Amino acid sequence: MISLADKTILVTGAAGGIGSAMCRTCADLGAKVALTDLADSDGGDVADDLGERVTFYAMDVTDQDDIRNTMERVEGDLGPLSGVVANAGIAPTGPTMDYPKDTWDKVIAINQTGVFLTAQEAGHRMNGRGGALVLTSSIAGLSVVHPETHIAYGASKAAVAHMAALMGVEWAQKGIRVNAVAPGYVDTPILDAVKKDDPEMAEEWVDAMPIKRVLRPEEIANVTAFLLSDAASAITGATIAADGGYSKA
């Protein structure tokens, strides 16, 4: 049985979609959970809906001081962090030849640098006592050819998977495990937007999945909870593709 009892878990980008499912699953497994997202997000309402074990903290993953101060507050309120999920990310698409530099910079700032800054601060806090980090990558960051035009998203998620490998090896002797989860096509607001704008592409995504359906956020959350738990004590530096077999098809 997977248990997160007596653990304090912080999740970034958790106001909706996969992030809120991660918070719910961690809380259901006994953890005290810090749900973090931007101040103008729905994070407060989501945390209230998830119950007393989940608390909202406004945090901007592109602001190093904000990350440091927020983790300080979380540890003061909920206890020392034993797990952190660097999940915040955005996915604007566009043809590579026409991709705007300001959009590229924003994607890299949130998806790549934000993950690095979050993991770095968590590492400082876990150094000497151990802990577990899970970084959210994507099948778009694996060696899979996609028809979609998401150059910045794919590049940033590839970097996240490689960061998990580098950190996992570097911090292993410190007792800090670092892994990544690479979701496939998941039923989230992002997918809803695709269904609305390009229903044929959405159908192609489902057809490309060996299991012939999109994934549920809870399925990604279950993998994340396992990697955060002591049941995954032998796993570090790995990227787990939670994609219904898509990357192997």
Rank of each mutant, 00 (worst) to 15 (best):
V144I: 13
V115N: 13
V160G: 03
N127V: 01
G51R: 13
T93P: 12
V85E: 06
R73D: 11
V74M: 10
S137P: 04
I139H: 03
L35M: 14
D60G: 09
R73E: 07
P95S: 15
Y57C: 13
D48M: 09
G128P: 00
D60S: 10
D105Y: 01
A39Q: 11
V61Y: 07
M126F: 07
D105L: 09
V33P: 10
G83S: 13
A159C: 11
H146C: 11
H162M: 15
V107K: 08
S138T: 05
K106P: 05
G130W: 04
I67W: 00
G128R: 03
G43D: 04
L29T: 00
S156G: 03
I108A: 03
Q120V: 04
G128N: 04
V144F: 12
R68I: 08
D63M: 02
Q112I: 12
T36D: 08
G114N: 03
G51A: 09
G130D: 13
K32L: 13
L29Y: 08
Q64I: 09
E75G: 02
V134C: 08
V144W: 05
P95Y: 13
A39C: 10
L142H: 11
T136V: 06
Q64C: 06
D66I: 06
Y99L: 01
L135S: 11
A161C: 01
E75H: 02
K157A: 05
I67Y: 06
S143R: 04
L142D: 04
Y153M: 11
I108V: 05
S41W: 13
M97I: 15
V54A: 08
N111A: 10
G131P: 01
P147L: 04
L29W: 07
L81S: 11
E148C: 00
V84Q: 10
T25P: 02
F116S: 01
L81E: 11
A86G: 15
G30L: 15
